[in-house]
Amino acid sequence: MEDFTTEKGFKKNIIDKLQNEDTWISLGQGLLKIILIMAIANIIIRIGKIAIHNVFKLRNLSPLKNSERREETLAKLLDNTITYVVYFIAFMMVLSVFGINVEALIAGAGVVGLAVGFGAQSLVKDVISGFFIIFEDQFSVGDHIRVGEFEGNVEAIGLRTTKIKSWTGEVHILPNGSITQVTNFSINNSIAVIDIAIAYGEDIEKAQKVIEEALTKMPNEYEELVDTPQLLGIQSMGQAEVVLRIIAETLPMQHSTVARMIRKDIKVILDDNGIKVPAPKFVMYPDKQPK
């Protein structure tokens, strides 16, 4: 009986195995199985990605279209998901080729994953919330939103966090799990509200006519306007002025810009037509000292 515990016996055993024809046949079969597994995995991934992108192309042809940003985000997310799943299955199959007990390995990984899941519940919550934010198209990159006390433009959306940049430059990084209520200002058109004050001594009817003529020309001048602005009439009467109200439908989040432009144009037009806005008046009373 040969002693394989000594160095000489161990070397002789290795040499005998290398010289054995069955050993090389077994290695060749295992290598071919691994190559075949990886080749099939790559083919499945390519077919899956092509199918995903074709589905989104068909959705774009339908009358109910989604935003391009959402389609691109979902396509990348599904591409990564199918890649990870297929490669994980392929890796398990490669391990089985080497004679490793895959079932025991998966069972052990399940126990470890369960323990990690209990210790990282907030992380799991953030990831799940991020997936539903993207899948449901609650908001997209570039949208102007308000989340709690934070408001600004969405800079980036990830599976774990969302970045919001306020108009003053601060970037707020919010865990997706903490986003429970969102106000999205970029989905529908905005409404600009402009109040114009006219002095009491001026002809109100003339002022309204002049303003209405100016409003009809504004859609050709400003692309932010969706429709012709409307003069609603007298909104209020103050101590020294009559206030006329104008509303204008604009593209999302363009109401402030449009309101400033309309105020400037109305001021110039009123001046050209000799219509005065109320001027502040100061009344001074003599200080009467008791004799």
Rank of each mutant, 00 (worst) to 15 (best):
E155L: 09
Q121D: 10
V147P: 07
E136K: 10
A107G: 11
V111H: 00
A115V: 06
S129D: 09
E170S: 12
G177W: 06
E149G: 04
V124H: 06
V116W: 03
P175T: 02
V154D: 05
V116P: 01
I164M: 07
F135R: 11
S178T: 09
A115Y: 03
D137I: 00
H144M: 08
V116E: 04
H144E: 15
L114Y: 08
Q121N: 14
K165F: 01
T161Y: 08
E149Q: 13
D126F: 00
G130S: 10
R146W: 03
G110E: 06
V141E: 15
G142Y: 02
S166T: 10
N176F: 01
G142V: 03
A120P: 00
G108K: 03
F135T: 07
V182H: 08
G117H: 00
A104E: 14
I134W: 03
A104L: 12
D126R: 00
I179A: 03
D143Y: 06
K163V: 11
I145K: 06
D137E: 15
L114K: 05
G110K: 05
G117R: 02
W167S: 14
K125H: 07
F118M: 01
S122G: 02
G158K: 04
V182Q: 13
G142T: 05
A120M: 12
G110D: 10
H172R: 11
R160T: 13
V182K: 08
N153K: 14
P175C: 08
A104Q: 13
G117W: 02
G142H: 02
L159D: 11
A115K: 02
V124S: 02
F150E: 15
N153V: 10
A104W: 10
V116C: 04
K125T: 10
I133K: 02
G108S: 04
V147F: 07
L105Q: 11
G119H: 03
F150L: 13
E155M: 11
D126L: 04
E136T: 04
Q181H: 08
F135W: 13
V111I: 14
I164V: 13
I173E: 15
T162Y: 01
E103G: 10
I145W: 09
